[in-house]
Every structure is written in structure tokens, then in C-alpha cells.
Simulated scan of single mutants.
Amino acid sequence: MSDEAKRRIFTMLDSDGDGVITHDEYLARVDRAASACGRDPQDPLVAAARAAHEPGRPRSGRTARPRR
């Protein structure tokens, strides 16, 4: 994946533009993708995607902007 593609993806995930992808911003991608595919928020697949990132899973909760 090119650096430009990585920057574009980061920009899409960093919805408030503060240079950090928070856990909430990261989870919001599940809801956006589900909506774009016409899936109900209560769909078992959507619920499973959200559950994969719930508390108890190892993560830092923050992802910094890729280096240029």
C-alpha cells in the first residue's frame, strides 16, 4: 500500500482531524460500512465486528498519524 493510500485511509478514520484515531472513531467505521452496505445496526455481522474491538481486547486506544 502506498504512503498516499495510507494517509487517505487515516484521514477518513480521523473524523475530527486532530491527528489521532480514537477508539470511538475506529469503531465508527463499522457503523459507516454497515450503513453503506444497507445492513441494520443490529445485524449479527455488525455486532460481531463491534465486539471484536470492545474492552478486554488488547489495544492502545489511539493511533497516531502516519509519518510523511
Rank of each mutant, 00 (worst) to 15 (best):
S2P: 02
S2M: 05
D3N: 09
E4V: 13
E4A: 14
A5V: 12
K6R: 12
K6I: 13
R7F: 14
R7Y: 11
R8F: 03
I9N: 00
M12G: 05
L13R: 05
D14M: 01
D14K: 00
S15P: 00
D16N: 14
G17Q: 10
G17P: 06
G17I: 07
D18S: 06
G19A: 03
V20S: 02
I21G: 00
I21H: 00
T22S: 15
E25P: 15
E25N: 06
L27T: 10
L27R: 11
R29I: 14
R29P: 12
V30G: 04
D31A: 05
A34L: 02
A34Q: 05
S35N: 13
S35F: 11
S35G: 14
A36W: 04
C37R: 09
C37G: 09
C37T: 04
G38Q: 08
R39K: 15
R39E: 15
D40L: 12
Q42Y: 11
Q42D: 10
Q42R: 05
Q42K: 06
D43C: 07
P44Y: 14
V46K: 00
V46T: 13
V46N: 01
A47W: 06
A47L: 15
A49Y: 04
R50W: 07
A51L: 14
E54V: 05
P55E: 15
P55Q: 12
P58T: 14
P58L: 12
R59T: 04
R59P: 01
R59H: 08
S60W: 12
S60Y: 10
G61Y: 00
G61M: 01
R62I: 05
R62Y: 01
R62Q: 02
R62C: 00
T63S: 04
T63G: 04
T63A: 08
T63P: 01
A64S: 14
A64D: 13
R65W: 07
P66T: 06
R67N: 14
